[in-house]
Amino acid sequence: MLSLSRFAAIAACSLFASCAYSGDSAAADKSPPPAPYAKVSSLVKLPDFIPGLGTLYVDPATLPAGPFLGYDKDGKLSATIYMIPMDALSKGTAWNNLKTGSTQVDSVDIYYNAGHPGVEEPHAHVVLFHDDGARQRLESK
């Protein structure tokens, strides 16, 4: 399991990455997105493809909120996901000006998640689907 201290180290390192992702949607249309984005399953023990979210990439400096970029099995950007800790939210923490993987958003799902490696505290998933077929592609087995 990746410890919090390891996460902090990765996050700190990524602050000095020379090629920071600007949030330009064109750069992230196909996987893999440019550095400092990294595949989540390479950072923590999680499946490569998570049903409903796809293959996830994140800039470790933006944890826990993200954005996480979700790709379908053909490598097409399909969703942007934010993971918002419930406890911090209830205590007044705000996350503003979060970047999106694409400016095109077809629909949004918001739901509770009990936690997983990387974002272990109970949190909310905010999922922006970028086209009308994205949801189905990300659910594919």
Partner: peptide, 9 residues
């Protein structure tokens, strides 16, 4: 076990 979207485990 868990629900598909991880609400319950």
């Amino acid at each position: 076990r868990g629900t598909p979207r991880g609400e319950q485990v």
